[in-house]
Design a protein around this nucleic acid. Structure first.
Lengths: 208, 208
DNA sequence: ACGTAACGTTACGCGCGAGTAAGTTCAATT
DNA sequence: AATTGAACTTACTCGCGCGTAACGTTACGT
């Protein structure tokens, strides 16, 4: 290959790009630094020079992918929209991101959550999302004059997130599937509920 | 320690018990065979003699925990019950199992799913469960004279499983929580749906 | 045009843990 | 009580992969 020398900032990003791919393909432990280095078009000590240890490199990739995901979602799910529209847009944004960044998703979840050293990081992020969802649900409920126990709110939000992750996994393995379609399916599952489905009621996006 | 010598069958089970604990505590890679051996009250070569390589040992523990889980669930979710009761009992069985076998659950999911070498195994199991759920849902729909596209059925089942896993994770970290209560919360989330919740409608078990 | 600092390399140290060879002790069978 | 084989141990080998020391090279400011 033998490409040009590059400024640090650029090389750092290339390394993160490489890291995402390798970590997602091999898993944290099986991934080795030489492969990541090679994929960044550079040799191993450079990776250590720019990103420290393997753990630190992993954390860096994790954080980058994570913030990209969050940004993409919050840009879409405007809190002033009606609840189902908020949910719909948020989900659509989420699935679009997963569809477009398969391996980023994999690094975030498959890997990080199962590793003692990193689970705290991703658990925090997850808790934040869940809290936001629970809060918005709470607002919607209060507008209707309802009151629900906090644990039940949390359970609802947790279910939603779990279901989303599950469909996201599936989406990551099905390139041909449209993210919007997946989001719609999830709306039917979580917004309408199984009972409604049995009665033939389905949810449809108002504005396609 | 220096306990008595034990027949192979017994020792094998002790090894699996130890393996579940260590794999769940440390993760597959970080777990080392010496620790598992020690926890089984025996030295490393015995583990190799009885269970082969580390991979094979992991697979053995995975399979044992897995079949225990499945058996426990199908024993409860009788197909002749009405749909919501099937779901309710299946979920209750599932959460009871998770509550009683925390580390078994961890080995099954956190670890196995993120490891290339084992993901196939657990994915197969998962696919089976999803298919069963989708099928029973289909039966229920046909009794109502409805028809739903297979992918939508699958998505509904997938959401349910994802939400269950999510709550199971939460339950595994909250010893004080009653599994039945968690199951009820999930029924509210997935059976009633968020829209119903907003309207103040909740699901309650008929027979406590 | 030349010094220097950032970019980059080759080649190794070293610990850890999977897996094994060779030998020992106990308990059941004859 | 001798035998035999299953249960169990100690004490290694060996490769892999993280992390680094020591050493080149190119761009860029002056």
């Amino acid at each position: 290959m033998q490409t040009k020398r590059l400024p640090r900032a650029v090389r750092e990003q290339q390394m993160l790009d490489a890291a995402v791919r390798v970590f997602s393909k091999r898993g944290f432990h099986a991934a080795n630094m030489d492969e990541i280095a090679e994929l960044s078009g550079v040799s191993k000590p450079m990776v250590y020079a720019y990103h420290g240890t393997k753990d630190e490199l992993f954390l860096a990739t994790l954080r980058r992918e994570c913030s990209r995901l969050i940004e993409h979602i919050i840009a879409l799910a405007d809190a002033s929209l009606p609840p189902d529209q908020q949910l719909w847009r948020g989900l659509k944004g989420f699935f679009e991101f997963v569809g477009a960044h398969r391996d980023g998703w994999s690094v975030l979840y498959r890997q990080a959550r199962s590793l003692e050293a990193f689970s705290a990081e991703v658990t925090d992020m997850r808790r934040n999302i869940i809290q936001v969802i629970a809060h918005r649900l709470d607002v919607a409920l209060q507008l209707e004059g309802r009151q629900v126990r906090p644990e039940d709110l949390a359970a609802q939000a947790l279910s939603l997130v779990g279901a989303s992750e599950s469909l996201a996994d599936w989406l990551a393995d099905h390139p041909e599937e449209d993210p919007g379609r997946t989001a719609t399916r999830l709306m039917n599952a979580i917004w309408m509920g199984a009972e409604q489905l049995l009665q033939g009621k389905t949810w449809k996006p108002q504005t396609p």
